[in-house]
Computed example of a mutant assay.
Amino acid sequence: MKADPVVQRRLLDLARVDTELARVEHRRRTLPEIVEIAEAEKQVRAKQDALTAVETTLGDLDRDVKRQETEIDQVRAREERDRGLLAGGSVGAKQLTDLEHELATLGRRRGALEDDLLELMERREAVEVDSQHASAQFANAQETLADAARRRDSALADLESTEAKRTAERKTIASTFEAPLLAVYDRVRLHKGTGAALLQSRRCGACRIELDRSAIAKVKEALADDVVQCEECGAIMVRTGESGL
């Protein structure tokens, strides 16, 4: 394949743009924020599960407290009724004895219920503290995730801007090459990563391998407009005064 030496040197401009586009793509795939977000999402799920568990316990305790208070109110109402009957003086001696016995029983029952209620209230206070702590941790985890997402989005926006500029630049440069030369360049680039590189000090700029004597001899024999490819990586080697030939 033939190409004017000036045209071959312009391949280095195309390779420079393609290298930058490759860096953009690599950067997009390996943003540290991606790892941060994955870990932050895991923490958000864990903190949310912890908060849900505490809130469930708190809800159960609230129902227990309400049930206990309702039972205490019922006992108190029964006591008030019995005291009203005693105060009315309209009950017989046997019923009076029964009422006094029932009042004593109700008093003990109410005392036990109130003790249980106090224990429930103390447990609820402790769980409420746990709930507040879990809620704060959940909020912190959410903020950490949001911060990582904001930084990721900012980095991606910068990369997209760079990519758009370089893509436009590549289109302009690529349009200056004949289709066969560009096809060879693109084929090598897609398979090896670099389509063209400078031959410098007898070393291929793409694979960094120094050419042996036979390869150097072939390159020396090639005409200036011959398109020379590296025997190792296939990249088009652009020859200049720095090639060491």
Rank of each mutant, 00 (worst) to 15 (best):
A53H: 12
E55D: 12
E55V: 00
E55N: 10
T56N: 14
T56M: 14
T56Y: 13
T56R: 14
T56F: 10
T57L: 13
T57R: 14
T57N: 13
T57K: 15
T57C: 06
L58S: 09
L58N: 08
L58D: 11
L58R: 06
G59H: 04
G59L: 00
D60G: 01
D60C: 00
L61D: 08
D62K: 10
R63I: 03
R63T: 05
R63L: 03
D64R: 13
V65C: 06
K66Q: 14
K66R: 13
R67N: 15
E69P: 09
T70S: 10
T70E: 14
T70F: 03
E71A: 15
I72D: 08
D73M: 04
D73T: 13
D73A: 15
D73W: 01
Q74E: 13
V75N: 01
R76V: 08
A77M: 11
R78V: 07
R78F: 11
R78C: 07
E79D: 11
E79G: 12
E80W: 05
E80P: 04
R81L: 12
D82T: 07
D82K: 01
D82W: 03
D82F: 10
G84I: 05
L86N: 09
L86P: 10
L86V: 07
L86D: 03
A87G: 02
A87M: 05
A87V: 03
A87H: 03
G88P: 02
G88V: 00
G88L: 01
G88K: 05
G89Q: 04
G89M: 01
S90Y: 06
S90P: 06
V91E: 05
V91T: 10
G92Y: 00
G92W: 00
A93I: 07
A93D: 08
K94N: 12
Q95I: 11
L96R: 15
L96P: 01
T97L: 04
T97E: 11
T97K: 13
D98M: 08
L99N: 08
L99A: 06
L99P: 05
E100D: 03
E100Y: 00
H101Q: 07
E102Y: 01
L103S: 02
A104I: 00
A104G: 07
A104W: 02
T105P: 10
